[in-house]
Design a protein around this nucleic acid. Structure first.
Lengths: 327, 327
DNA sequence: TTCCATCATGGAATCGATACCACATCGCAT
DNA sequence: ATGCGATGTGGTATCGATTCCATGATGGAA
């Protein structure tokens, strides 16, 4: 492997001069610069990243920890992150926890000395996690969940849920079911649920116990949750608010299977604006969360923090309700 | 930041001894080991990865270059890769080209000195690319496309296409349309098309020119391609073979929109076994490519190569045709 | 002529680890 | 007593860059 030393020898200059050419720093005569550049070109020399990192204490790598890349939300966020980071010469080291909270902690340890910063696409906000993050004082951004004392980029889950609920009510529905997820996921589990309950309450609408079910982020569980709602409720709801598109699509697939028509017999709304949502039949009413923007925003804040510039501690992104035929 | 030197001082041993403890190499007395371990524990010391890499010439990082992570195929492959790599202590450096061939080349340059190996989830096999890969002699695996002189993990696109076509013919169809993609993508563009043509020919079935259209890997273009087929053909085909699920789903959405029924008026089949495919109406007949397995296999071959063990130059994965109601 | 910026360049220390080698100790066989 | 292999430890060079400092030219101002 050709090193800076070889380049120096071949160009008949010192390593210092090669380094100056490489980094565009200090004084280098035009003549020397050209000689060096020619040698670099000829040899195809690429500086060793780790030698550089060792010396400069910068890796130009950002660690991204996420629960999975097989769903649209995280993969969109990563796309946004990548786009913004690569503009500034940063790369992404990917850590897929596969929904395993243990691994989340392990990866934090693993990454700490290898990256300039970490982005966590979070599904939980357990104290053990936030504790650890603070303890390793490394530039850090959390996407999708709120936490104390860290930079967060979040969505306004509470108001989204109120809006969706309000939308259903305004369409004339008074009996509305809800398919949520476990509350360890604060953003999706708690805030969206609370938004739903609060809006229903503010409209003086009551909620039958069986109308509220839980799933686990996949289509199949949306299907099962819907089944429970249909089978267990005394009075069937006329509308369903599912906290993710996949749950909503699962619910749709169940109600269609038992011969109900959407939206005539039951209206359904989701959240997430998955690509899928516009091609199911009927197209699903949902909320666009602009995940790529979230990724870009997270990258911007992280880089600002790293570079000692001004950054915003909390960013709450806006959203857009997409009204389609399922309601 | 605490370094190996600090640990050495605190444990009252030399750096060499700490290193030996860290790597479980050479002789270390039980007593010294315990002292060192205690200090490490107490300080939360983590060795610097780049210093280590500089010395050992191993980064324990694999670069993964892909066109996008927003579609299921690459994200499944990455999941498989990650699973297998992390078992062996390797991490993934992600390079998203956003379908830009220029970037593909740039990333190769960028990664070359930072990683122990590269996995390319390929969409093209242009000579410029394969040339470059060979020239940088770095452990390398290509997923999804075949190329000379590199380790490849591929699918049997040709026979898949023949099988799907045969399946349609066996169901009684003789007029079959085809929605493909550009042929710069050898696997998806050429092989699948050739499989279709060859199978049709072997059955003595002719293909009207307008029955064969092209799209670009998204649902919308499947929709447009289908529109062309319907509008331009003298005799409408009774079945459509789309080379990806998204194209197939686009096609479905178009024919449903114009009031045709699936599969009564027209049958549709895709490839890819996207999650989506089982929830569209009717569920889509498709082919399961086991992308995660491909990722795992790619990782295994790459690691075997890196470690100087036996590896297979070409791996062709098997597949499974999923017969559903769309045919 | 002298002096002092400005420009150019190289030498050497350094980053934080590993690994080779030398040396010391110890027990056991000769 | 001597030799020798096994064990344990530290010293030091090294990986490939950056960076600070010293030293030399050069040239225009005083």
């Amino acid at each position: 492997m050709v090193t800076i030393k070889d380049i120096a020898t071949m160009a008949n200059v010192s390593r210092s001069t090669v380094s100056r050419v490489l980094n565009n720093s200090g004084y280098v005569s035009e003549e020397a610069r050209q000689r060096v550049e020619k040698v670099i070109e000829a040899t195809g020399y690429v500086p060793s990243g780790y030698a550089k990192s060792l010396r400069t204490k910068q890796t130009k790598v950002i660690g991204v920890i996420l629960p999975t890349i097989q769903t649209e939300t995280p993969s969109r966020v990563v796309t946004g992150l990548g786009r913004e980071l690569s503009k500034h010469g940063y790369q992404i080291l990917l850590a897929n926890t596969d929904h395993d909270k243990e691994k989340e902690l392990e990866y934090l340890d693993l990454l700490v000395r290898q990256v300039d910063g970490i982005v966590l696409i979070a599904t939980n906000t357990e104290p053990e996690l936030t504790q650890k993050i603070k303890s390793m004082n490394l530039p850090f951004v959390m996407v999708g969940q709120e936490a104390e004392n860290v930079i967060c980029v979040t969505y306004d889950d509470y108001h989204v849920a109120r809006d969706v609920t309000a939308f259903l009510v305004d369409k004339g529905h008074t009996q509305i079911g809800f398919i949520g997820v476990d509350e360890t996921d604060q953003a999706v589990g708690c805030f969206r649920k609370k938004g739903f309950y609060d809006e229903m309450k503010s409209r003086d609408l009551s909620i039958e116990e069986a109308w509220v079910q839980k799933g686990v982020f996949d289509i199949d569980s949306g299907c099962k949750a819907m089944k429970k709602i249909i089978e267990d409720s005394k009075q069937r709801p006329t509308a369903i608010f599912a906290v993710t598109d996949r749950l909503a699509i699962g619910a749709m697939s169940y109600v269609k299977r038992i011969g109900m028509e959407i939206p005539k017999d039951i209206a359904i709304a989701g959240i997430g604006a998955s690509e899928l949502s516009q091609y199911v039949d009927p197209p699903l009413t949902t909320v666009d969360y602009k995940n790529e923007t979230a990724g870009e925003e997270a990258a911007k804040q992280l880089l600002a923090f790293i570079q000692g510039e001004d950054y915003q501690k909390k960013i709450v992104l806006d959203y857009r309700l997409l009204s389609r035929d399922s309601v």
